[in-house]
Design a protein around this nucleic acid. Sequence first.
DNA 1: CCCGAATATGCTTATTTCTGCCGTTTTACG
DNA 2: CGTAAAACGGCAGAAATAAGCATATTCGGG
Lengths: 266, 266
Amino acid sequence: MQNQVILRTSRKINAMLTAERRRYILEVLGRDGKVLIPALSADLRVSEDTVRRDLRDLAGEGLLQRVHGGALPRSPSTANYAARQQQAPDAKARIARAATGLITNDQVVLLDGGTTALQVAQHLPHELRVTIITPSPPIAVALAEHPNVEVVILGGKLYKHALVSVGAATLDSLRMVRADLCMLGVGGLHPELGVSTDDLEEAHVKRGMIDSAAEVVALTSAEKINTASPYIVGPLSQLDYIVTESEVPDHLLRPYENAGIAVIRA
Amino acid sequence: MQNQVILRTSRKINAMLTAERRRYILEVLGRDGKVLIPALSADLRVSEDTVRRDLRDLAGEGLLQRVHGGALPRSPSTANYAARQQQAPDAKARIARAATGLITNDQVVLLDGGTTALQVAQHLPHELRVTIITPSPPIAVALAEHPNVEVVILGGKLYKHALVSVGAATLDSLRMVRADLCMLGVGGLHPELGVSTDDLEEAHVKRGMIDSAAEVVALTSAEKINTASPYIVGPLSQLDYIVTESEVPDHLLRPYENAGIAVIRA
DNA sequence: CCCGAATATGCTTATTTCTGCCGTTTTACG
DNA sequence: CGTAAAACGGCAGAAATAAGCATATTCGGG
């Protein structure tokens, strides 16, 4: 019966290499902060026994921590950040995947910090050849694995809560940049108040990023639409794209489309 | 049977040289992120054994990673990074712990990239209240969890192998810094050749760090003493401290002590 | 022009690895 | 406790691999 399943969905997943499968497991683990055996078994179209063997071997290499029912990251340091990422992994991943579609080869892209932007970094297609400029150390580390991406990190004082560079040094560096595209995570999005965020320093950096890019993309989950955070980044007129979830009702997005912004539902 | 067909066609089409075939393999690997032996055998009209030999040789040159059934791109740099961190955890941790003893409250410290420096970051006492300036995103991330450390990250182009910022932007930022202490990982340490490292850009950054600090500490494991790497960072006279393993015999360290450097055995 | 070494390739055979399945034991949780 | 899920160990078929051998091609020197 498992055979039938395999046959029915027999995409070329049959050609999945063992080592490739294990890399995938580690990738998911890094992205979501945990892996579950039934989910992996379904995703990878292999038996749960095989997944257990994979996890056992990976744990033997010290690459993850095996627990009942799945596995967790071995390093506790990434766990916090990963846990936060776990909040809405589905929606964020979908938004991120859609956002990568706006990037074309040989572009220079300013990528914001934050968990949504990190998802974008992790979902960049392997063939995509771009330069990514980011104030976020975790994003820089994540992109170091990408074979075709050149990474530039913006220096500055590290704002620990969001793990991004902020301050005068960051803004100085930004002034020397002319990017094709800028992808921002936002704290709030409002037809009249525009783009806003939770921290003053972050707001300055986001504004600098907008000023250094030809086109601006805002990444936002559903619940942030038509809300405002304390610090204003800039008016809606600076946005060219909004990428959000597909569940958002049309009438909520109408004001943004009327403002000339292309809205992409993921 | 299949044999004859292949032979006949292969003689005609055999403008395909061995080296050409291998370049094709690498091209496919770069494009698809993996190669499968049966597919390559069919594409290239050679036996699977030949493909296996090709992959074996290419793996020997470090151009790909051989796995059961095919090959994958070489392990991403962070895998190397993680693996390197496990290499000598004992010695490195001891060196790192000893190095933290050189740091006092309210200092500004330049902390190099690399696995040894990362150990220093992870061993900073919780009560220590300092500013850490670093070109290494992983170190910045690690220090974000520290309650009393202010982190400043140096921007620049990310050198993926070592996960540190390099380039003119990094050096520019360094010129605006006056630090009390600078902690360097070294590639080699030699009484006459001084401090050296494996990468030219890294050497520039290390030199910039030395120039921006009042005192300089070199962190080195035993096997690097009295060796030299290709790129010179600077003479021994710029060093104030060397932190190394306790197992190093006295006579090896004598030249450094005679040069006025305080040697600390951890 | 011919011979022989070096290389490259394909084939055969023995060995190893991978994977799903099954039965048993252990763990998590009400 | 008791139940269901999860984990472990062993087994067998299939695939992949390594090792050794045979053949073909190339190249250099008599």
